[in-house]
Design a protein around this nucleic acid. Structure first.
Lengths: 219, 219
DNA sequence: CTACCGACCGACTGACCGGTCGGTCACAGT
DNA sequence: ACTGTGACCGACCGGTCAGTCGGTCGGTAG
């Protein structure tokens, strides 16, 4: 009743021959968008295919016309999202400057992200357990390519150039990402303040540690 | 058929009057134990009450005789476990020594834990989203009392005594716990080696940071 | 105008799962 | 021996949900 989609954006103005699939693509994109919002708000199990379909103004039949399963819909949504993030963070890696400056740029890019995009990266960790085998690997690798491997590339340069002490760069990158995750969230916002302060906190802690600087005499 | 529990451990030898509930308690404990193992191996949704009952050699009716719901069973299991951990970590807090020594003791206690007990503490983070309201608060507070608040107490002393730079102790404690969690898991085991090496890595990173120590001239 | 095709519909199915409930049985007190 | 009690049984229920399938409709080619 409410959901008629006759005409509307179908076809439109550009009359290309090889670009005629716009209608189905638009629906698929609408479904992915609805799924994105719902998976952010509720757990995977709580988000039903009916719910997604209704939010996308399609029926369940329509949804299953575009996606073979709920899992593959989730995967499509997440892989797409993670690949966009990879592209974003690669800019910081490609930047000129020492490792601390590049890491600051990457972290700032991350902290400046809209809340929902940041939260989506946490969804991977939340939902990773519901996938098996190939699909799980896909998800893990897409996440690692998006964030930890970008951090790792910068840290590797830092170690090579003597800016960082010699250590396993992968472990360091995971550690750094973990520290950044601490600093998002309400409590850190109240305790530290705006993005700049949180960025400084993370960098200071990661590079300099938590020990008090010795001002006067040595031990 | 297979599950007859006639006689067996019922009553046993101790013929006390006020200590006669052993039978039901033993069954409840068996159920909690079975639930513990299953929740470790599978996600909350995947673990059915049937499965738990069968693993505990009871029927679903028996299970519901002891626990009013699946959630409350999970909660019983987890709160019990977390309280045991709090008791363990409180020993390190009560210990004499500077903050680094006490933190090392706490971390070593954590790393030396059997795998399943360590993983149970990660379950809290995994499953926290499936609870609401009071039960969620119970779970969160039990976890925080078990680990982060113990770390925070040590860090607070360290700041007071000038061993640590002035910062928000709660954020620092979360950061420390996050760093420790990096160091459990297969990759860290391969990259770093035994418990001692992993302990050193965490402490060194947390107290001293990742930056290379300046050996020669200052900046 | 007609035949066709793919997008989409929505009622339905089969399986599963948390929780219930009437019943059974071993045992303790008498 | 008799009876009450509570631990435990297991078939069953109500509800949910992923996935299916026969069908409709609008546009497009011929």
């Amino acid at each position: 009743m409410t959901g008629n989609r006759t005409g509307d954006e179908a076809k439109g103005g550009d009359g290309f021959g090889n670009r005629s699939e716009t209608r189905a693509e638009a629906t698929a994109a609408r479904i992915v968008g609805a799924a994105r919002g719902l998976f952010l708000a509720k757990s995977y199990a709580e988000v039903t295919t009916d719910l997604i379909a209704r939010a996308a103004d399609v029926t369940k039949g329509g949804l299953y016309h575009h996606f073979p399963s709920k899992e593959s819909l989730y995967l499509s949504m997440m892989l797409e999202e993670l690949d966009r993030k990879r592209l974003l963070f690669e800019k910081a890696v490609a930047m000129a400057g020492d490792s601390r400056e590049r890491l600051a740029r990457l972290t700032r890019d991350f902290l400046d992200l809209p809340t929902d995009e940041r939260e989506l990266m946490r969804l991977v960790r939340r939902d990773i357990n519901i996938f098996d085998g190939v699909e799980r690997d896909q998800l893990v690798r897409a996440y690692q390519r998006a964030l930890p491997e970008q951090v790792e590339a910068i840290l590797r340069d830092g170690i090579r150039d003597g800016e960082l002490s010699v250590a396993d760069p992968r472990l360091l990158s995971w550690s750094f990402v973990a520290l950044v995750e601490i600093v998002i969230g309400d409590y850190a916002h109240r305790a530290l303040g705006d993005t700049g302060a949180r960025l400084d906190h993370v960098l200071e802690l990661f590079f300099g540690g938590a020990a008090a600087r010795r001002v006067g005499a040595a031990v």
